[in-house]
Design a binder for these strands. Structure first.
Lengths: 223, 223
DNA sequence: GTCTATAATAGGATAGAC
DNA sequence: GTCTATCCTATTATAGAC
């Protein structure tokens, strides 16, 4: 996905970035992520963000044209975090190794950036209107390209003939769940929070089930 | 899960239900679901709900003590919709048939009640504080009981020794995804909306992958 | 660049006429 | 039971002093 090109969407009248500006913008965005992750776009107030950064709310409007501009900056920030290793997977690669690596990368993202995952989830649940401006056309093309790789593997008899789209959705949902639904996982398992070991265990279980489910044998050891 | 007992939480000063009251309350709840599913608790305004029902907003406060009371009524409504067939699954049952049936039930819920699923998802992503009052203690016990059934199947050699909790999370996330992330599925696949056939295809794919992933053979035909 | 003060509006909630 | 009018607070956003 080409994300750099879209940075201007976040703030059309963006001023040249001085040192102070860059630092403050990042601080505001970081605080904004906390709120957006908990309450979504509509449910978040500039006031709360301002208090969280320790800045008067007028400053937020100095750095970002308005609430929507700040939100879009946060979204762009998230899209830039996304792991792109899956983009380069090709038909020549080993399916089992490639899928295992992708699951690992997605789960690592859930562990390291749970708030980013939640903001994205809330945005999609809300209809994803703010995202459509950012990734409409080439996102669909990207998805088709990735699905084609799975289809080619199946056609070559390297894996079961599973529907590529549904397999990708299963990988997405299964990994994102550990970020988005962490509060529920904690509740039903009696944990206070998820630690690294929990994510590692989940990763191995997901890889085991999904690879076998596609008729694949897990790679002997991860590289 | 014992849900009926908790109905009083939704509105402690609930008045006896007359015909008009019951009808209006349902109309309000229905309209509220639309908004809560799109914007979560904080992001939803009573005003918007009132306009959607075609009632002055003072009426909403007549029927529900306040915004929180209305939200909790919506949540209770959702919990009552939940499929309970999984509760009665026991060690004696056939794992493949039971898991396939559960996936089918969960996916059917996503198809028939996508808004309920989204409200629940938003609530969990937001931290799930409003849910904890409703199902804290026995929810954990319920989960442990269900996980124990999977563990017993594994111990009896009826299926692979997968971690029950992670398997359940995979079933939950994989099925709920088609409700919560429908907007994204539509975007990447170029659909305008998901139809029954899409859900049926997804159901079969999920059952195929997950059953095989657990070392199970799909039941010949569904009952 | 930063902040106080303030405008303008939307939000939740209630009083009280009907 | 129903609705208008209203209160008060929170919210987005801006003006303008420093």
């Amino acid at each position: 996905m080409t994300v750099e090109v879209l940075a201007h969407i976040a703030d059309p009248n963006a001023k040249p970035a001085g040192r102070i500006r860059q630092k403050n913008e990042q601080a505001i965005i970081k605080a904004a992520e906390d709120e957006f992750a908990k309450h979504g776009f509509k449910g978040t107030s500039m006031n709360t963000i301002a208090q969280s950064v320790g800045l008067p709310k007028a400053n937020l409007h100095y750095y970002f044209s308005n609430k929507l501009g700040l939100y879009q900056a946060v979204l762009v920030n998230i899209l830039e975090l996304w792991d792109n290793s899956f983009n380069t997977v090709s038909v020549e690669d080993d399916p089992a190794a490639a899928i295992a690596r992708y699951i690992r990368a997605k789960m690592e993202f859930s562990r390291r950036h749970p708030k980013a995952s939640r903001i994205y989830a809330m945005e999609v649940i809300s209809g994803g209107e703010h995202l459509s401006q950012m990734l409409d056309q080439d996102y669909q093309a990207w998805f088709r390209g990735r699905a084609a790789v799975f289809a080619a593997w199946s056609a070559a008899g390297k894996m079961d003939p599973v529907d590529p789209a549904h397999l990708i959705f299963l990988i997405w949902s299964g990994t994102q769940h550990y970020a988005d639904f962490a509060s529920q996982i904690c509740r039903v398992t009696g944990r206070s929070r998820l630690v690294k070991a929990d994510y590692e265990e989940a990763t191995e279980q997901l890889i085991t089930i999904i690879l076998k489910g596609c008729g694949l044998t897990p790679p002997a050891k991860d590289a």
